[in-house]
C-alpha cells in the first residue's frame, strides 16, 4: 500500500501516520444532545468493510493532513484530498480566515 500525496507524489506507507475515521465531526457542545453526540464522536465508529474516509498525516513529507478514501478489504485507494480543503468547504464562513 502506497499513498499519493497531492504535494509530494506517490510515497511509501511508512512516511505517514494514521489518525482514523475522517467522518466524525466535533459536535456542538451547547446542543441539547451534546452528551450523546460527544460519546458518538469520541468513541463510536461505523467501521465499514468497504470504502473508508480516513485521516493520514504526511509526517516524513510535507506535514499535510490528508483525507484518503480507501477500500479497507482491498487497500485500493480511490482518492486523496487535502483535509484543510474539505474542512473549508464544510464551513464556508471561516474560509477566509486560515
Amino acid at each position: 500500500m502506497r499513498i499519493t500525496c497531492p504535494y509530494c507524489g506517490n510515497r511509501s506507507l511508512d512516511e505517514f501516520l494514521y489518525h482514523g475515521d475522517a467522518e466524525p465531526q466535533r459536535p456542538d457542545a451547547t446542543a441539547d444532545n451534546a452528551m450523546d453526540a460527544f460519546v458518538s464522536y469520541a468513541f463510536e465508529r461505523t467501521n465499514p468493510p468497504g470504502q473508508h474516509h480516513e485521516l493520514w498525516y504526511h509526517e516524513a513529507g510535507c506535514h499535510a493532513w490528508l483525507v484518503v478514501t480507501r477500500h479497507v478489504s482491498t487497500h485500493a485507494i480511490s482518492s486523496v484530498d487535502i483535509a484543510r480543503d474539505l474542512a473549508k468547504a464544510r464551513t464556508p464562513n471561516t474560509a477566509g480566515r486560515a
Binding site: 511508512d14 467501521n47 479497507v72 478489504s73 487497500h75
Partner: peptide
C-alpha cells in the same frame, strides 16, 4: 499495521 483493515494480510512497513 495501524490502519482500519478487513484484509487478512498486512503491509511491508510492519514486516520490516
Amino acid at each position: 499495521d495501524g490502519y482500519n483493515s478487513y484484509a487478512q494480510r498486512g503491509n511491508f512497513p510492519v514486516v520490516e
